[in-house]
Design a protein around this nucleic acid. Structure first.
Lengths: 137, 137
DNA sequence: TTTACTGCAAACTGTTTGCAGTAAA
DNA sequence: TTTACTGCAAACAGTTTGCAGTAAA
């Protein structure tokens, strides 16, 4: 399967935890998953893995450019599959739903701002915390 | 002093830890301080406070609208004095320096994006991670 | 004098690490 | 057979909480 290719390409051995983790990202309707999320999903499916292993594999996949780490909340991180097109996030504080969006104008403006201050952008993070327009209180 | 007023206004007793913490925010050249930063500064000045107290007071000041919490990094949080004018942050990944900026165009665009998706913005977070333009490696 | 506040230590949460065993190559 | 990988438990870092004592009002 294609998962195996990606794992090998990263110079990693093809093991159950790694395959399962990639599968979960590819199959889950949620794009954004935490270490716990993944740990639970694997467990529910009957396989045995350690939480520590999940953390280790997530880190490895991040360095390999397969996953990307996101820190929305105070405490914990979520990961998502890296896709070629950059996007930012909108988090609904009522439902927890995460929506991705992209806006070139904002991107350009950011570059300008950095340049004006004598810097170049290495990375950036834009998260909008939102509520539904139709006031459901 | 003005610190006392702010503390009283928040319905809190005027105590040494609270006064010192506010003083530190008002006197420090850094606008953004972590619990540890503050703890150390108070200690260095000879006063005795517990780290737990610092955390408690920061939280109280946040609910009172005196301070605002910011989470730039994975692990820990920094606080800054609330000012009326909104701004975003630029963090230099070489020096750790934090620069504040404001851009109306970006703000407007954000509102538009949220609206297009049927949401209104409650809060947002924009952080640019940057490096100096003149490549000092 | 009353009640909010404090310092301390112990508890918590998400994450990382050491280690001896296990399995991919 | 070699060496990367794993699970487990113990360790971590930042933060929170319970409690008995202390001080602001």
């Amino acid at each position: 399967m294609s998962e195996d290719k990606n794992i090998r390409k990263a110079g990693l051995k093809v093991t159950l935890p790694r395959v399962r983790i990639l599968e979960i990202f590819e199959q889950s309707k949620e794009r954004h998953l935490s270490a716990e999320d993944i740990y639970n999903k694997i467990r529910e499916s009957g396989d045995e893995v350690g939480l520590a292993t999940v953390y280790r594999v997530l880190t490895q996949f991040e360095s390999a450019g397969i996953l990307m780490k996101q820190n929305f909340e105070d405490n914990f991180s979520v990961y998502e599959l890296v896709s070629d097109d950059h996007h930012d996030h909108m988090v609904c504080i009522d439902s927890g739903k995460v929506i991705e969006f992209k806006n070139d104008l904002i991107e350009e403006e950011q570059d300008k701002i950095a340049k004006e201050h004598g810097y170049k952008i290495v990375d950036h993070k834009l998260v909008l915390y939102v509520k539904p327009l139709d006031g459901e209180k």
